[in-house]
Design a binder for these strands. Structure first.
Lengths: 180, 180
DNA sequence: GTCTATAAGACGATAGAC
DNA sequence: GTCTATCGTCTTATAGAC
């Protein structure tokens, strides 16, 4: 190992916190190293560029969402539960992918894989079912909004998702989807 | 009038588009004037700073949301319908306030009024009702997520919210809220 | 692995002419 | 109202010593 895994991890932790608070573009390398307590050059030993930090941050949650897509057709119940869990597991990063336009703009030019929008579309399509009516598509969007956004806002309001809360979110998402 | 209202409006239109695509911090004044076809100095005749552009962009939608809070207690039906309409009316700006961390960071230091989070909290509290149970709070978050986020994603997916779509979103939000 | 120093350019904003 | 030119600062990123 030529790398110090500790410093690398600390950079990622600090970067995530600052990106979440001020956005990717609004956070400078100097900002990060200010908290880290080292020079900027030290950071560039661990990461080749600012965008690589973003990549490293997103790699794991991104893979988790991609797995969600690839594991194919299942009941709305199972799918929505999986969305809630995956979102809760990586909520700060999920927020970053879903929300920060500057982070999204950078990823647009970098990522060769399925991007965040494509993942959303695939899950939405699975929720809506084959040849969905307009109403059915709206319901899919509604259920997805509950599973993803309500999980995110509840997480930031209460700190964590208890099992009881998880059950309630899932039930609300299923009600939003309707009993077709 | 010493001002050219046309140029001022064009700046706001271009700025909103770029802020939405790349974030507030990710968009430079040179970027905006590049599209505008003038010098940077010309822009600074119309706006005293970059933050003032953001202020001007947010003023109207922000006031609409604030009115929503101040118009006080009403049925969940009416409240959720108002959230859907207010969100649809100003969707790019609503997205900016809700999502872009760099825009939010700037506003945090500028705005003396109710800020975006306080508006969300007030509407959430009204939806949850007095002394809500945990389940009731989760349901309020779920309904609010539908009214706000589903409206936003449907708008960007389909271009506009038809009356039929509006009815479906509202119905899904009310189902998510539950029949207490 | 971390340092100091600095390159090279983008950034927000202003001065002063027209 | 818009221009050219510029100020001072911040930015990403690198060179080279330790």
């Amino acid at each position: 190992m030529t790398d110090d895994p500790d410093t690398r991890e600390r950079i990622l932790t600090i970067a995530l916190e600052l990106f979440a608070a001020q956005g990717y573009a609004g956070t400078s390398i100097a900002h990060i190293t200010g908290r880290l307590g080292t020079s900027k050059a030290a950071l560039y030993y661990h990461f080749g560029s600012k965008a690589e930090i973003l990549d490293a941050l997103l790699a794991k949650p991104f893979a988790a969402y991609a797995r969600l897509v690839e594991s194919g057709p299942r009941s709305p119940d199972d799918l929505l539960a999986a969305v809630i869990d995956t979102t809760a597991e990586s909520h700060d990063v999920a927020n970053l992918i879903a929300n920060d336009p500057s982070a999204r703009a950078v990823l647009r030019e970098r990522t060769r894989q399925l991007d965040a929008d494509e993942i959303n579309e695939a899950l939405l399509a699975e929720l809506a079912g084959p040849r969905p009516s307009v109403a059915r598509r709206v319901r899919a969007h509604a259920a997805y909004a509950v599973a993803k956004q309500a999980t995110l806002t509840l997480l930031s309001a209460t700190g964590r998702i208890t099992p009881a809360t998880r059950v309630e979110i899932l039930a609300a998402a299923l009600r939003a989807l309707g009993n077709s």
